[in-house]
């Protein structure tokens, strides 16, 4: 149990059975009046934000969260299957829960999965991933559009903008925070 004196930015609490992270926190109190604890909270499952004001005697349940390293096994329909690298336990996430991570996911990749009350609610892929280009148009020399990039498709099906010299079969480093090309990687 947390009390209002534990409230701070970054604290994860359980409200109505949902995990929330405090993204903004303000303590207010008129000199002779009641303390108010104003919080902005983000739902860690839906990413929706809300504002809540708490008072001195309010109590909070800790959000039962756990992070585990898992290995990607396979996708089937709307489900992505992973295996815990320590316990070998298997678990599945939906496409919606996967979010942007599906753009970077290849067989055997290790990712961190976040569990709320034992159920997976999201994954974090490594900040940088290396993916092979499976389709690239040759760069049109006479291109007058003025752009100095071209689109390529990588092995996961993700399409991104890269410099003209990138060819099919190249391995690219991609920043998963922005989804952008970083560099070409030599094998």
């Amino acid at each position: 149990m947390y009390t209002t004196s534990d409230l701070r930015k970054g604290l994860k609490i359980n409200i109505d059975g949902q995990p929330y992270i405090i993204t903004d926190f303000q303590f207010s109190k008129p000199g002779k009046g009641q303390a108010l604890y104003r919080c902005r909270l983000r739902n860690m499952v839906t990413s929706n934000s809300m504002d809540r004001t708490f008072r001195s005697n309010d109590k909070f349940d800790k959000a039962d969260l756990e992070e585990r390293t898992v290995q990607f096994l396979y996708a089937q329909g709307d489900e992505y299957h992973f295996m815990d690298t320590k316990s070998y336990e298997q678990m599945a996430l939906t496409t919606e829960q996967m979010g942007d991570a599906v753009k970077y996911l290849i067989d055997n990749m290790e990712v961190d999965v976040l569990l709320f009350e034992g159920r997976p609610i999201g994954v974090t892929v490594p900040t940088f991933v290396n993916l092979t280009v499976t389709a690239a148009e040759p760069y049109a020399k006479g291109d007058t559009s003025g752009s100095d990039t071209k689109p390529v498709t990588v092995e996961t099906g993700y399409v991104l903008q890269v410099p003209p010299f990138v060819e099919e079969g190249d391995k690219l480093q991609i920043d998963t925070r922005t989804g952008e090309y970083v560099t070409r990687v030599k094998e």
């Binding site: 207010s28 109190k29 008129p30 009046g33 009641q34 108010l36 104003r38 004001t53």
Partner: peptide
């Protein structure tokens, strides 16, 4: 709601 309104609306 006196303190709440004082803090959020009036002050």
């Amino acid at each position: 709601r006196f303190d709440e309104l004082l803090v959020t609306q009036v002050e």
